[in-house]
Design a protein around this nucleic acid. Structure first.
Length: 99
DNA sequence: CCCTTGACCAAAC
DNA sequence: GGTTTGGCCAAGG
């Protein structure tokens, strides 16, 4: 049995470039409501080079957080073709990735 | 083993 | 439509 974190990382790795997901969806994919735990796993993120944690945002479209700083995260997402305004994803639904 | 801490979420105000 | 409130689960001290 993998740890909760590893399962999160597995899912994140499946996200293609230009797509994003939410903490909620990850939790749902794991059959749990541990939204907070997912966030925790991200901040721990021991696989920062393997797991694209910058492609994960809040359900309401808010960008959330990032180890390198929220602004840096926005910069990365923008470079992948995602429109962001006032620290929030414009069309979250449009870029949302389904597992 | 108890308590605290989160990069959360949905509903209520 | 911004802000507060209560609930949610896993990991770490």
């Amino acid at each position: 049995m993998k740890t909760f974190n590893e399962k999160c990382y597995d899912l994140l790795m499946q996200i293609p470039k230009g797509k994003i997901t939410t903490y909620k969806l990850i939790a749902e994919a794991l059959n749990t409501k541990a939204y907070l735990a997912v966030g925790n796993a991200m901040k721990n993120n021991p696989y920062v080079l393997t797991v694209p944690c910058h492609r994960v945002v809040h359900s309401n479209g808010n960008v959330g957080g990032y180890v390198k700083g929220i602004e840096k995260k926005i910069e990365i997402l923008k470079s992948e073709g995602i429109d962001i305004s006032n620290n929030k994803i414009i069309n979250l639904k449009k870029y949302l990735f389904r597992f």
